Amino acid sequence: MTDLLIDVGNSRTKWILAEDGHVRGAARAVGHGDITALYDEWAGLRVPPQRIRGVAVGGAGMVDAIDEWIADRWGLAPQWLQTPALGGGIRIAYSDPAQLGTDRWLAMVGARAADYLPACLVDCGSAITLDVVDSDGRHQGGLIMPGLAAQRMGIARVAPALPAVELSTRAPFLTNNTRDALASGHLHGTAMAVQGLIRRAMAESPERLTPLFTGGDATLIARYLDMDVRLRPDLVLEGLATLP
């Protein structure tokens, strides 16, 4: 069975095809402002999917638009998942599982399926989330901090006179101009904050945790760390693929 798996985030939609519980290739991503490009990609599939499942944590209106296009094109109704208290081998720590983003749960499911537990899982998207899962799949809790995009938008809002910056893989630590100083603060500051959180989580855990990075900015942030981490950019979709 061929599945179309969809991850609607805060700023873009990722998708991938899966067969027999395994994703095929790497995910593709399209910004919410270019939904026509998303439809064009799906229309170009050689064989229509037999089942469609998704997770949506952002993109107001995207789910309705996607549902309508898929119904018109393929006559199918996507299944949009919600976070359960127990599912995919993961027991959620939240007393109200609905408060935990479904993408965070699916990333934990993906980590378990890929045999990474126990893990300290960091998802680097519009928000950066950190979750600890023990070897039995018990979620120990987590935290949320602003991601790179949120930081740039926030500082632009409170200090509009500052220049806009482009984030690169080679930002120096100490700089001699404002634009580079902002980039350094975003990249080095975020990496060191995340690294410190990981080390605290590892120090407080009775088990040896695997630091596991996923999300759109995972590769970029990982370049500025002083520690080794495992990179799995499409872990949310991998977790979705494993569910029956």
Rank of each mutant, 00 (worst) to 15 (best):
D217Q: 11
M108Y: 11
P172L: 07
A171T: 15
V55A: 14
G25D: 12
P163S: 12
I92V: 12
A119E: 04
D34P: 09
A127K: 15
V63W: 06
D20V: 03
I35A: 09
P211Q: 06
T36V: 12
P97E: 03
T2C: 15
L106Q: 01
L240T: 02
R200Y: 02
Q151F: 04
C120Q: 15
P84N: 04
P78T: 00
R208Q: 07
M192H: 09
V229T: 12
Q195R: 06
N177C: 06
T210V: 11
E166G: 01
L76A: 04
L167C: 15
A161S: 06
A191W: 06
Y39P: 00
L220D: 03
R138N: 13
G88D: 07
F173N: 09
D96S: 14
V57Y: 01
V165E: 08
A181N: 12
V30K: 10
T13R: 14
A127E: 05
G54I: 01
D67A: 10
F213H: 09
R230F: 14
A113C: 05
D64S: 03
E41T: 14
L240E: 04
I90A: 11
A127R: 10
L148V: 11
W105Q: 00
G31E: 14
Q79C: 13
L209P: 03
T219E: 14
D136L: 11
R157G: 07
Q79L: 13
R104H: 13
R73H: 03
M62D: 00
C124N: 12
P160K: 01
M62H: 06
L187F: 04
R230A: 14
Q195T: 00
A113D: 10
A93K: 05
H32F: 02
A65N: 01
A119V: 05
I6G: 09
D115H: 15
A113Q: 15
V132N: 08
L117D: 14
I66G: 04
L231S: 14
V109M: 08
D136N: 13
L5V: 01
V8H: 08
I221S: 07
G216F: 03
G101S: 08
G21R: 08
G110N: 10
T178W: 00
G75M: 04
P206L: 03
G59F: 11
A65T: 02
A149D: 10
L237D: 00
H139E: 05
A201K: 13
C124I: 07
V23N: 13
L174P: 02
M153W: 10
W69N: 06
L174D: 09
L130E: 15
D134K: 02
P48W: 09
D217T: 10
V30Q: 04
S126H: 04
L4N: 09
P160S: 03
I90K: 01
L162D: 04
V109S: 07
P118G: 06
L17R: 15
T210Y: 02
